[in-house]
């Protein structure tokens, strides 16, 4: 009885934390603080262009293009891991293989893909920092990426670490659908940066 109460209490604590965080982000978004922070970041973006990454990215177009290609390849790796794991949660594929096996192994692939995505993304951002700063779609992508990372490491992963039989199937499916939507948004907004900046 006491164990159940503790678990329930723990779940509520996490829920309250997440809801509080979401409310804080919303308050930030609709206040003047967002605009002030954005204006203060301009100096940082100008500095990014002066870093070695920024200089290389601006000077050698071929290097920038190759890094861009590896960014896309890493997104494919990350996307593959997300699709396979979420499709397993939905029961679309690998239904005969324990979900734990698929989730744990694809998470390693996901992390590897994410590291390359972040590393190549930072390089590219340095090369065109002065331009992307003014693009709303860049900030949408950053918001989507932050949401995706937060969702994976603070909601999806801790939740799915528990015995999957204890979690209501609808919750598992909602997690899978949310995960796919978040990462499709990350990829789509990322592609749109190229259009908006041209």
């Amino acid at each position: 009885m006491s164990t159940t109460s503790a678990t329930t209490s723990g779940s509520y604590t996490k829920t309250i934390t997440v809801v509080t965080l979401v409310l804080l982000i919303l308050a930030f978004s609709f206040s003047s603080l967002r605009r002030d922070t954005w204006l203060q970041l301009y100096e940082f973006f100008l500095w990014m262009e002066t870093t070695p990454f920024g200089v290389i990215g601006k000077t050698w177009g071929a290097v920038f293009a190759i890094v861009e290609a590896f960014h896309l390849l890493a997104m494919a790796l990350l996307g593959g891991a997300v699709v396979v794991a979420d499709a397993r949660l939905m029961g679309w594929i690998f239904a005969d293989i324990p979900a734990r096996e698929i989730l744990d192994k694809t998470h390693k692939v996901f992390v590897a893909g994410l590291i390359v995505v972040l590393a190549t993304g930072i390089f590219m951002a340095c090369g065109v920092a002065g331009k992307i700063y003014w693009l709303p779609v860049f900030w949408y992508k950053m918001l989507a990426l932050a949401t995706g990372i937060f969702f994976v490491f603070f909601i999806r992963r801790p939740l799915l670490r528990r015995d999957l039989n204890e979690i209501r199937p609808i919750v598992v499916k909602l997690v899978a659908i949310s995960s796919m939507l978040v990462w499709v948004t990350v990829a789509a907004t990322g592609r749109w940066i190229g259009f908006a900046g041209s």
Partner: peptide, 13 residues
């Protein structure tokens, strides 16, 4: 690009 991510994601795995 999105379909490339799906196709290559599966292929890479």
């Amino acid at each position: 690009v999105l379909s490339l991510i799906i196709c290559l994601g599966m292929l890479f795995l």
